[in-house]
Amino acid sequence: MLEIRNLHVRVDGHEILKGLDLSVHAGEVHSIMGPNGSGKSTLAQVIAGRDLYEVTGGQIVYQGRDLLELAPEERAGAGVFLAFQYPVEIPGVSTSYFLKSALNAVRRQRGESETDAVEFLELVKDKIQALGMDERLLSRALNEGFSGGEKKRNEILQMAVLEPRLAVLDETDSGLDIDALRIVADGVNRLRSADRAFVVVTHYQRLLNYIVPDVVHVLVDGRIVRSGGRELALELEERGYGWLEQEAGATAVGA
């Protein structure tokens, strides 16, 4: 479903991703872990199409298409979704109006009919309840003044409404209390299916108790330096990243 080869990305003249490879198949959940500043969010944003980042080499193939050729909204239409590490506050736009606009925008792109107000409300109410969210958030300005946890749940709500094929969750677990973590994980697990894939960026193995990954990758200094099964996450929890950073440094020097 997603094939990233030798991806090089710069921002403001600094190379952040330095030849990253990643291969995700439909039905899989991949977790990406790694130290602060290693490039996890950069990868996530590049997949979603943020133009701040300059791709200087490599390619991203998504469902057989060159993802880098597509505008962000076309990627959304094609089923790519990013849950932002820092969801943006947008004063003056109500959450429900935004959700409805987004849903209709992707439906149009997918050649489906737009929702009417009644259908939309039913759909959202179900999902909002499942996520244990306060319905009143819908009438508030998008993310404005939302607590950290509310923002993260709101990202998952958007995912649930838009039903993407490839969802990248960038530290959706940070800032969540234990109950919220479980609720959010349930939200993700409900969407898991043979034709969907998830890339879950996290610092904590705790989340992976709830969203059980098929593969765990470690991103250090712009490259995936190790991939493994669940047990890799446990090992990282115990040993930290130092040993992998040293290894990566050694190979970089050796190279």
Binding site: G49, R50, P72, E73, A76, L82, V88, A102, L103, A105
Partner: peptide, 17 residues
């Protein structure tokens, strides 16, 4: 970018803002 990543076209996103 946030709006566009949810499927709104650049023009729609600008208009909304």
């Amino acid at each position: 970018f946030y709006l566009r990543s949810r499927g709104l076209t650049a023009a729609e996103a600008r208009s909304l803002l």
